[in-house]
Design a protein around this nucleic acid. Sequence first.
DNA 1: CCGCATCGTCGATACGCATCGACAAAATCG
DNA 2: CGATTTTGTCGATGCGTATCGACGATGCGG
Lengths: 340, 340
Amino acid sequence: MPTSKDVAQAAGVAQSTVSYVLSGKRPISEKTRKKVEDAIEHLTYQPNAGARALASRRTRVIGLVIPFIPELHMASIMEFVSVIANTARRYDHDILLVTEDEGAAGLRRVVGQQICDGLILMQVEGDDERLPVVRSLKVPVVLIGIPHDPSGLVCIDADFEMAGKQCVQDLAAAGHDVICVLDWQREVVDRHVNYVERFMSGTDQAAESMGVKMLHLPGGTDRDVIADSVDKALAETTGTPAFIAPDGTVQDVLRRVLSSRGLTPGKDVSVIGSASPTLAELQPIPLSTIDLRPAEVSRRAVKIICDLLEADPQGPTESLELVPTVITHRSSTLRPPRGS
Amino acid sequence: MPTSKDVAQAAGVAQSTVSYVLSGKRPISEKTRKKVEDAIEHLTYQPNAGARALASRRTRVIGLVIPFIPELHMASIMEFVSVIANTARRYDHDILLVTEDEGAAGLRRVVGQQICDGLILMQVEGDDERLPVVRSLKVPVVLIGIPHDPSGLVCIDADFEMAGKQCVQDLAAAGHDVICVLDWQREVVDRHVNYVERFMSGTDQAAESMGVKMLHLPGGTDRDVIADSVDKALAETTGTPAFIAPDGTVQDVLRRVLSSRGLTPGKDVSVIGSASPTLAELQPIPLSTIDLRPAEVSRRAVKIICDLLEADPQGPTESLELVPTVITHRSSTLRPPRGS
DNA sequence: CCGCATCGTCGATACGCATCGACAAAATCG
DNA sequence: CGATTTTGTCGATGCGTATCGACGATGCGG
């Protein structure tokens, strides 16, 4: 492998000059710049990352802590991972995977060994055990998810409260007087990821201001449980009930239950779920969705950490960003009555 | 951050001694080992990865090239990624993400800058454009997937031919005389991932030796296409037709079509798909599956590359490993008649 | 035409670790 | 008991880059 010294020799300049050509941190004459660039091209020189890290104290690598596989959410996790990796490249950084298996020790390791300049944590729980460690680290860390106590932390997430409000306002405007929210799968709820609470807080606020009745019912993957929830909702109204099923798996079960009851979404009931546009369109009856914008959240997370890495080895930072959600009507919801 | 020099000073030894304690490459007396280990603990010393890489010419990082998101396969990709990352840690390595967006240039970059000691490529196509680059790289590369010409390459994948055989043999033994294979989604087929061909070759071989009729019909996500395929299969037999639907999305569509025709899997027809046990059990009628063992493939890929990294900067290596697949009966297939 | 700032380049050094040769002390052998 | 090997430690050097101070060359104003 050629080194910058080889390039210097080939170009007839000093090694430091090569370095300055590459970094642009000192003025270089057009003539020598050309010589150096030709030599680089000719030798197919690429700077050694280890040496660079050693000398500059910057690895240009960001650690991404991915959650332990709760089976069914993997597809959505992958969307985050993929967008994060691509966005990082755009800032000339790479992504190192840190699995949740390593727990808090993994964070200490990658930061302590200086493999990474900073971290992004996904799927942060309300009372995450890793938070104390995160606060003690002397590198930038961005959390995806909002813990109960976000003080001293940099967080970003979809605005789940807004999402909840949008769903309820929308359904209420369409004329529903009873709106039923089906909970996430037990696996999610048990993690105490507090986006569940934030979403529910949004639905309740909107329900109160719109004067509609909210039912919070159990979700999960058990057909009988969902069937029970549907029956309760039907019993509560003489009109058309509406269902909000944020969790993808819960949506699947709900769809089957409704179908077995002879209820057609968009006609006899309304259903809003959260799903990507592609998935929503693929369903038998295209699903009206609340889009939680995972790609946008990912992009912003990377931007935030890269900005922090640019900034001076800063004092304590703290920030909280919420990404607006987007509601999209497809065929699974009633259209609002005219003029309302 | 403490350095090995700090540790040496605290322990009253030379820096090189600290290094030898850590690496075990020279004998160390019990007494000084203890002193050094205490100092390490006390200072919470962790070796600097950049310096280590520079001096040892080993980063202990493996690049993982993940495929461009074809929407629906993300869940299964994540399974690979997750297992690969965890297994790598067990060999004391880390995983760096390389996205397919960067293409072949990305491979040259991470290897050229010596960010990685080796690479794992996922989702290798039959005639993958990256193969020439891979062959020219002077670091170990493991491919997940078998290209048309695997010479000079190290490959591993599930044994799709075996999978195809198992499905057909099984269905034939259960008494089906017509077996219909629904193709993968167009997105997959168009990629020329040649596991499709390998699977089909397996089904055909088995069909010939078992004396049953094979129908290869289009798959995809279009309901009408699947409905056509189902009708054709029904027209071909007076008995009970069987369907093999490797692709998860195709399975979903098939399920709906069969249900709308009043056909119940496990009773009026047989269906085998490929899916994880968890997903298979969650379906309305638990799906009999052919398990393509993604976790095992991932584990072996990591083992292979770590073994190669241990070995001397070797001459050209070449190998091909196929992981046996496993067929599991659940409720979507007929039971074979007694004594057959 | 001289003093002075600017431009462009070089040489030297530091970054933190692995590794090699040297060497003293201890153990082994004839 | 001297010769020889083994054991345990040290000092020095190199890995490839970034960066700082130095310095000659050039351009400027007075």
